[in-house]
Design a protein around this nucleic acid. Structure first.
Lengths: 115, 115
DNA sequence: ATAACAAATGAACAAATGCTCATATGTTCT
DNA sequence: AGAACATATGAGCATTTGTTCATTTGTTAT
């Protein structure tokens, strides 16, 4: 080790190249925020259930064995991430998945988990 | 509302049917644990970087602008979830993605985020 | 208008998380 | 063996998170 043009340790060229190919910081932040939603068993169950069928809050709570309040709070998070949509029918509110991505993401995850 | 055979509120048949199609509780729990890993911007960046190239701890820390310790702690979590593998070369340890699922999951997430 | 029910919301609190700092382990070179 | 360097680990701490309880909002029926 004597060459002053040599990088101390960091493989600077590699680092620079990768840095260029990296998405914007903000995008990766949003990505993490999205996955954070999937990173809770109550919410994952909600999403999986809704991938099977639209369902009302009361039934969701019963199916999950948690309070209506807990479900409602979590649905709020899912709504904020645009993962679910809902429609009101009288006193009842039915939730459903917003689009197909969700199921794809869940399935990819399941593939990893189930090996 | 008079029929005694009618369910009070819960759409019991639907609930029961969905319940059958739902994966084991433990599987969904593991699934949430997996996504929890993706639900942090430091880790998501790590995973994205490693999807582009294998890299050593020092360089990862530099690229992310965090301490070596922080990266090391997070790599530990990634290791525990079998998302990365590593090889030692002298004093240096190089990390890489364990398999292709990771990139697929990231890409699906990005699709959702970028609309 | 009032009662009854479904869902949403706010406050509070326990548990989990991610960072930093200090230190330990592992490896190479002299 | 000892110094120097790369990485890993443990403890401590501030912050975030998910739940429950109490209350409010929205809707229907009397």
């Amino acid at each position: 080790m004597d060459d002053s043009t040599e990088y101390l340790h960091a493989h600077q060229e590699l680092v620079d190249r990768v840095k260029e190919d990296l998405p914007e910081d903000e995008v990766l932040y949003d990505l993490a925020e999205l996955f954070k939603i999937f990173g809770d068993s109550t919410r994952v169950k909600l999403l999986y259930i809704l991938s099977l069928s639209e369902m009302c809050v009361f039934d969701l709570a019963q199916l999950l064995g948690v309070t209506q309040s807990a479900v409602s709070h979590q649905l709020r998070a899912l709504k904020a991430s645009k993962l679910v949509r809902y429609r009101r029918e009288g006193k009842t509110v039915f939730y459903a998945l917003a689009d197909g991505h969700v199921r794809t993401i869940l399935d990819q995850g399941l593939e990893h988990v189930e090996e």
